[in-house]
Design a protein around this nucleic acid. Structure first.
Lengths: 215, 215, 215, 215
DNA sequence: CATGAATGAGTTTTCATTCAT
DNA sequence: TATGAATGAAAACTCATTCAT
């Protein structure tokens, strides 16, 4: 389960090999530090072939970033949905638990593939506003999903009557922050743990709930 | 109030001018994309002078990052403390409010100086684990302060009996995430707003507190 | 006769062209004074091509030095041997005459190609002990030949019972000295003459042979 | 005995210190590789002072070369003459022995101060024909002396009736060759030995003197 | 006179991109 | 279609020389 489907055509296999190796090298060396020749060598193709397939280094990188996000997305979707529909999952888990599962699924993927984190950072660092970052596009696409789940949580009385968009942002920002700052100093292996703790705090809050009585 | 003290000696002024311009250019172009010549030109000095002062491009960048973090730190300290002691502030504001103020002070600085955010991202992207990132060192230095405030909050019954280290991490990760993902697409001007909303959610939680009664 | 065989493949021709021009420029300007761009321009290739073929300036220079020594070696070998075996030559000429011919063949080459002398000096000046100089390697390879001829001379009663290694050294040192100090002030055209005179003196000695009778 | 007289005035001492350190650095690093700053630092003066005294790097180097040759010359003169006149020395030693002593005195100096050899090579490599090399000027100045001694040797029947100029050249060329090629591979300590053997061969010749009997 | 900070011309080297085979 | 040799623009860095203090 949770395996990537293998590409079938020969051309697709070659593309896949290039992207896989590009991911490794870009993650290890950074975008500017990466020599396309190295990627071509690792993929076992000529440099010209890389350019034929992806146009230029920038597009190769962006394709790599997209590749990473899609793999993450696939992984999380399979992991969370497991062939069920969102409403069923809400019913079965309750919204808070479902939100937790979604975040943890993402964290799990990134913990297994820390290269994806590097790619994401490289993309942000190199392309800033000039290219709409792949992972933000991913977030945008999935925002409505997250927003919908949150709204359901409010409707079901499981969540406070918060602003769903702000809450979605807080969720993803928190995930981001954990990934970027938390994966240094050998902490890469503890990403899931860190995200879990952070999400629990976000769900339940830091302030003592019997606080009002104090007033 | 909240102004940087100006450097007095001539040499310090020159260093300051180089760093200020370096900050602008590195933030705009990214580390690898920056030609040191441009910084020298903007600072009104020869390229040799830049190298004389900072050794090489890498050290120039790291000095710039340190410069940014120190300015942020000074700003937040002045803004939050206002010549008072932490215990007094806790007494006067309560812990949740104080935590809010600290985060907002940081957010305010970064909203005013979005270049600092870029510098931070560039540092992470370029130097990864090889150099202990300046902003993480800053965080490390200040962690004990944040931890202490949280502990006081628990002792005072204002915060739940959470793990203070995890909570500190969650706070800073959230701030990070907001800065990095939120400052795109013209949202740089809304950083404070975004952080404010996120911190409120983290403080109060998403889950409805009267939830148990529903069961 | 005594012509270099031309390289056949296209790649070899290009390498040859680069080396030939490198020899000219290095000899004229010196190693440190030479801009690789100039060599590339003269060879009619891009600078990148030069680096592609030779790695860096240092290796380009060392390849040039090797190129020079090999050409000299080929020239001298063809000139002296003329398709005969050493023993035959000894028989036909006698050892002193053969030694003379060898030295003169080398001198002839250097007189025709004074650039080779410059390259040799540059190599010694720039790389000192760090790289085992090309021409010393050449000497080492050919020492045994020279030693053998000398030993034959002693055996045949043509040479005094000298130490053959010391004598070989003296021969080559003398050639060296003539080349380096003698090729200044327009004396380059007289190298053969100078070597010839010096070798004759070395062969026959300066001291009057009827000297003993004076005692 | 054989000590350099110390400079007396303050300015002269400073010049001397600069030259001594320049000799060390130029010999170790080569002319182009040497940073004038290093020399200034070692001499304990400002870089400006070096330029004030010597004009530019080239002139500093040439002054250093001159300094080296003069020290060598002084050393050899003191060592050979020992307060006597040339005619007396000829009378006392005979010409062949005197020539030997002269060469060995030079060799001794260079063996003690191999840096001087490097300086000589650097000068030749860097300045070629453009500047009349210091050591060749030295040779020119002393040629008449050597020529005179040789002529005396011929007149006294100690030397064959050779061409004295050619013989002088052969002597110095041989010394040169020994110095330049012989002082590699840790052989610097054996320079005197090598020169001694070479000079003996040059004096006595390689060809067997009873050769005529063979006819 | 002495100093050493400032300068910028000059060089090496890399690597994205092209295009002839 | 695939290749990889060729290219040259671009950038980091050095250091001889100057000159204000």
């Amino acid at each position: 389960m949770c395996q990537q489907p293998e590409p079938t055509t020969k051309a697709a296999k070659k593309q896949n090999s290039i992207l896989t190796n590009a991911m490794m090298v870009f993650a290890k060396e950074g975008f500017r530090n990466t020599d396309v020749q190295i990627i071509a060598d690792l993929a076992g193709v000529g440099k010209g072939t890389v350019y034929r397939h992806f146009g230029n280094k920038e597009q190769l990188f962006l394709a790599t970033a997209k590749f990473c996000v899609e793999r993450m997305s696939d992984y999380a979707r399979r992991k969370v949905l497991q062939d069920q529909e969102i409403p069923n999952l809400i019913e079965a888990n309750g919204v808070p638990q479902l939100l937790r599962k979604i975040m943890l699924a993402c964290a799990e993927y990134y913990q297994k593939h820390p290269q994806s984190i590097e790619i994401m950072i490289q993309e942000r660092a190199e392309f800033r506003e000039s290219v709409y970052p792949t992972h933000l596009m991913f977030r945008e696409e999935n925002r409505s999903g997250l927003d919908g789940i949150m709204q359901a949580g409010i409707d079901r009385g499981e969540l406070r009557a918060i602003n769903v968009m702000q809450a979605s942002d807080a969720f993803t920002d928190l995930l981001f922050g954990c990934m970027i700052s938390g994966c240094l100093q050998g902490q890469k292996g503890k990403l899931v743990e860190r995200v879990e703790s952070a999400i629990d705090l976000l769900l339940n809050g830091l302030v003592a709930t019997d606080q009002p009585s104090k007033t």
